[in-house]
């Protein structure tokens, strides 16, 4: 196997890795942006909860190849199609974890806050959300790692970022780009996950002493 392919294409690899990251970041960002308010709403309105979670799990079941293809009439063979599709999956994971996180807050704690004179919004923002953070962050980690690996499915419509390396290797019957794509994807996932663990430790200092 000609491993020299990798240094020879270092510049290209960096470019598509950055593209891969940008697509992941955009999907996770928009996913989070929609998921948080939707999760709060579902938590507050029990009747909405079953609908939101039901639709979510239905969407999650749709294979990514199918979802990307179904988005084609709207956004065409562009990176946007992949990003929109991945946003949907991110959203599903994050909504579920936001609701679960809020539900994991001991009712007595929220009650105590209210008893001391916090109104609903203040209780939500300063007590319930911070306490739900570990579960929400766990969802964010899952969503991020999952998105990093799913971007490559975009190869179906020619927009797989690192996934294009798989196509390249397959068409030229050459394993090195495929291996490079897999390894870089795994490394990205590992680093992103470690970073998010760090963020979580900073955001939830009360958990550090609790072990």
């Amino acid at each position: 196997m000609k491993w020299s392919w990798i240094p020879d294409h270092a510049g290209d690899l960096v470019t598509i890795t950055l593209l891969h990251l940008r697509m992941t970041g955009t999907a996770v960002f928009f996913g989070l942006l929609v998921a948080l308010p939707l999760g709060l709403l579902a938590y507050r309105v029990p009747r909405l909860k079953s609908v939101v979670l039901g639709v979510s799990s239905l969407l999650f079941t749709i294979p990514s190849v199918a979802l990307f293809t179904l988005l084609l009439p709207l956004t065409g063979l562009t990176p946007t199609t992949v990003v929109v599709g991945l946003t949907v999956y991110t959203l599903v994971v994050l909504v579920r974890n936001t609701v679960e996180g809020l539900e994991s807050v001991p009712p007595k704690v929220a009650e105590a806050a209210r008893a001391m004179g916090y109104d609903r919004v203040r209780t939500l923002v300063t007590v319930e959300l911070p306490l739900a953070l570990p579960v929400i962050m766990a969802g964010l980690r899952i969503a991020t790692v999952m998105t990093i690996s799913l971007v490559s499915v975009g190869l179906v419509i020619g927009q797989g970022a690192l996934g294009q390396l798989f196509v390249d290797g397959f068409q030229r019957d050459f394993g090195v780009p495929i291996i490079a794509g897999i390894v870089i994807t795994l490394l990205l996932a590992l680093v992103a996950d470690a970073l998010l663990v760090g963020v979580q430790r900073v955001l939830t200092p009360w958990h550090r002493t609790g072990r």
């Binding site: 798989f166 394993g175 994807t185």
Partner: peptide
């Protein structure tokens, strides 16, 4: 399961097929 989630599934299948 975290490792499984991080593995780019299409890449793994294509690599196995090709190798």
């Amino acid at each position: 399961s975290g490792f499984g989630r991080a593995l780019p599934s299409f890449g793994v299948v294509i690599l196995a097929f090709q190798l």
